[in-house]
Design a binder for these strands. Sequence first.
DNA 1: GGATCCTCCCAAACCGCTTTGAATTACAAC
DNA 2: GTTGTAATTCAAAGCGGTTTGGGAGGATCC
Lengths: 342, 342
Amino acid sequence: MNLKQLSEALSLSQTTVSRALNGYPEVSAETRKRVVEMARKIGYAPNSQARKLATGRAMAIGHVIPVSQHEMMNPVFMEFIAGAGEAYSRLGYDMVLKVVPDAQVEGAYRELASLKKADAVIVHGPRIHDTRHEILDTLGVPFLIHGRIPGQEEARSWIDMNNAHAFERATDLLLDLGHRRIALLNGLEDMDFAARRRRGFEKALTNRGLSTDPALMRQADMTEPYGAESALDMLDGANPPTAFLVSSMISALGVARVISQKGLQIGRDVSVITHDDALSFLPNGGDDPIFTCTRSSVRYAGQRAAELLIEQILPNPDVPVHEYLEAELIIGQSTGPCHATA
Amino acid sequence: MNLKQLSEALSLSQTTVSRALNGYPEVSAETRKRVVEMARKIGYAPNSQARKLATGRAMAIGHVIPVSQHEMMNPVFMEFIAGAGEAYSRLGYDMVLKVVPDAQVEGAYRELASLKKADAVIVHGPRIHDTRHEILDTLGVPFLIHGRIPGQEEARSWIDMNNAHAFERATDLLLDLGHRRIALLNGLEDMDFAARRRRGFEKALTNRGLSTDPALMRQADMTEPYGAESALDMLDGANPPTAFLVSSMISALGVARVISQKGLQIGRDVSVITHDDALSFLPNGGDDPIFTCTRSSVRYAGQRAAELLIEQILPNPDVPVHEYLEAELIIGQSTGPCHATA
DNA sequence: GGATCCTCCCAAACCGCTTTGAATTACAAC
DNA sequence: GTTGTAATTCAAAGCGGTTTGGGAGGATCC
């Protein structure tokens, strides 16, 4: 069922039918009504490939999700994508998604762009030595970064939360509670967000004249066992931490598991603050959340990213847009004053 | 840079250039070489919309991910998609993904199909009263179900794990260990997989002449707090369970958290078996996994689903294919003999 | 009455690729 | 020298829409 058949059924030209369906003004109300009704009756739906070819727009946004070396799929991506997907369906766009190993990420962006499979792309998980912005520039594809690429803060469009500030505040909170040995369980620090969180952590310490202890700082893919193993090592170590600052709820669950297993009570014997991306399957809410946390919804970030990309960047690709999301610092049950006999 | 320009630069017809690039035999080796080199030199990439229009194939598979009433994004979907995505890039297909509220799932499939945005689709999360197969049939779109739609086992293509058998075996294991009060924390039982798991659980009990206790059976979206709250309620109840059978690692973590908090030891005081989808951010591996589990990798399921859909179903949509994945029953640290003074 | 302006509709070009059907050339066979 | 065959190459016709540039008919204005 194509336009031609529909127009023949109506004894109208394809032009008129097309215009009627797409809301152009140079069609009488009566004709439009007739067209719309007939289209519905015989179940006409425009072929999207043909439309894309004719208009030159793909009406799709590309996402490339990297799978890390260790085959880890970060659930944060999924939640971001859920937010973006909601916005896409509202705005009439499609999402074309590629899930590829780290090493093929650039190639995937190149493909989406040069084959015109997407009008624009979202850059996920920027690294401190990222080069994707250059590739996308030469390809002429508008894009928005979820996070920031160092050195590209002004020139590029991005949406990001204030990682450094959030972790500085979290660290301050622990320091205010009297903690001095604070462990940082971070994500991989070649990722920009993790590097920023570390800087925030370090800044809070140095602001009070404290030094950082490399034995208490780790980075890895943020799995549950990563949290558990790190906590076990550190708590069994010579000079154990009294508090943990963790980059992900998932790893924080591992930390909590180990603390309980050792017969310690979280929030009393050991404090934990985690970053909470507000993942839907790990709600940490209510009046008195399980974990004290810095919270920023990635799902909302995804939604805003899609909106910004479609509404601001596509119509005007040369004006960079920036959006800051402040993380909330929310007090829960997992923090309390330090009781260590310093 | 399009075909026409490329062919002019080579003083060849578009036909020949197209054939040379697409590997057709009726082009001399020398000409092909010349074409390929020039294409690379001037950076020609075929416009995929045009190609799709001309060939009539979208070279894309559609996925529609439902977001449940409670706004929950099931991470299982993401992992499935990671597996499928790997296969798609290998096979030259794209994935077009829609994330929509439960109520709009049908419409999303309809759109993908009637607008020819995808050559085939994957049906996620079948329910016991699902109707998507009918819609897709009338639209004439090949599809593969991840799971099964009751009554459609023979006629449709699907890939599924043996949910009933896995949960029956898990229950048997607990019964063998002497447990008699076993709680089932299931997913929502209007989902086919959850209904099957429940049947497996009940079958194991009735096989030994035991009856089920409604107070020990719950169903919900499988979040961490769901596990925690259910465990807390039940353990504080009049006649607490000595073992838990949980449909998801995420909820199992919640169960484990509560058990530890109550000063009980998991595996000794209370046993837990969980289904383990082998989510990459929740590894439960090693010689002696944290959780005793029934394990079946959804990522592998995603990969196989994509392969089956592209290699078997697309060329021959009328021959249904079925693939069974058996779950392994893996003994970990979370199960042990029942010590309850019955 | 004629020029001007809308309103509404249409034929045809175009988007960039694939594919059909045919033409050209070269060479061997008869 | 004609014919048959294989190897190359090409012009043109789609694929199914959108968009350009008119054109017909009626109303408005001098």
